[in-house]
Write a protein that binds this DNA or RNA. Sequence first.
DNA 1: TAGATTGTTAATCGATTAACAATC
DNA 2: TAGATTGTTAATCGATTAACAATC
Lengths: 205, 205
Amino acid sequence: MKLPPRTVERLSKYRRILMEQSSEEEAHIFSHNLARLLNITPEQVRRDLMLIGLTGNHRKGYNIQALLKLIGKTIDSYDPQYIAIIGMGNLGRAVTAFIRKSESRLRIVAAFDIDPMKINHEIAGVHCYHVSETKQIIKKLDISIAILTVPPDAAKNIARILTESGIKGMLNFTSVHLDIPDDVYLKDYDIITSLEEIGFFIKAK
Amino acid sequence: MKLPPRTVERLSKYRRILMEQSSEEEAHIFSHNLARLLNITPEQVRRDLMLIGLTGNHRKGYNIQALLKLIGKTIDSYDPQYIAIIGMGNLGRAVTAFIRKSESRLRIVAAFDIDPMKINHEIAGVHCYHVSETKQIIKKLDISIAILTVPPDAAKNIARILTESGIKGMLNFTSVHLDIPDDVYLKDYDIITSLEEIGFFIKAK
DNA sequence: TAGATTGTTAATCGATTAACAATC
DNA sequence: TAGATTGTTAATCGATTAACAATC
């Protein structure tokens, strides 16, 4: 199914926010109520739900269970998608712990580092391999997504290894620009740029 | 000066990438060379530079020093903008260390937590205050940007306190949707949603 | 002058919002 | 029926890309 990236992001958020406040709530929700939970417009909600083919009730709104089920069917993959995290420094460990705490289907199944103290230990609940094993382990464990939390000078090289290993998506926390093929879905989390952007837009003049 | 958010982001990246590989390089750069460094089109580079009023040389391209200086003048604030980080758990400490290591003008001047072990200590190089002091410290130290790395259930309350303290921008690492006034510039770093988005776009079918 | 690059406007693309008929 | 909401198309907005004259 073909969906705009922004719609996919919102579907993920609809699901999370509705799962959090489930049970206690009603069985149905109106587009304007769901919109208010995320500070967006009701039109946007209706359009997103239309795109995934959910049809609501003109009296009661959208059935929440049906909505959750359809979002799952739309954005989740049938086969589990496994995640690796490369670089188990402070940021790597923190991100790993963060994801493991979240109630999501996301499964981190391998960590990689070069520190001998970490290799073959559980770090933040995940087995840590040496970076030199990246290619084999990624293939062996059928890992399709990588999270990059390595130091800047290691980023480009690791990105190359990951692409060669057949990784399909990357979340890049390093502030380094990665030049990878188009068929790898890359999402940059550039903290420095984001803070500079915030800085610009709140400037007095 | 009024600039599109995407342009501001790219200006930040032009600067970073040019500073990294400075000195050794030439004094000038062509739009297509700068474009290639970031995998964007030369048109986009020229348009961005046009927007900030930089004029290049038809023979030699853009003067790198002039470019860097103008980007600084455009996106940096004259008065320093101070940053606070709220929540000194794993993620908070990692993000703090990450920013401090970066060569940028970004200055984290205060951290906040509720753990008595941390209060009044230096954590990741930053003095840690108790969350109850947030409002006073933010005003006293003239902090305009906050980074939120608190647990999900604390997020909404802290966001309210921050807004009341007059914060102007926020980088939100919690996966919680924050309902804050329009005059606070909010940037969400929703790791779970981003990974689910990647998952969707790399799906087989 | 010929060739390459800049600077800028127009066209296109993608996403959001407005509008409103259909329906419960 | 009257009123509220959905579903969907059209209009708008923002950002990117194409096109090309001006210029070194």
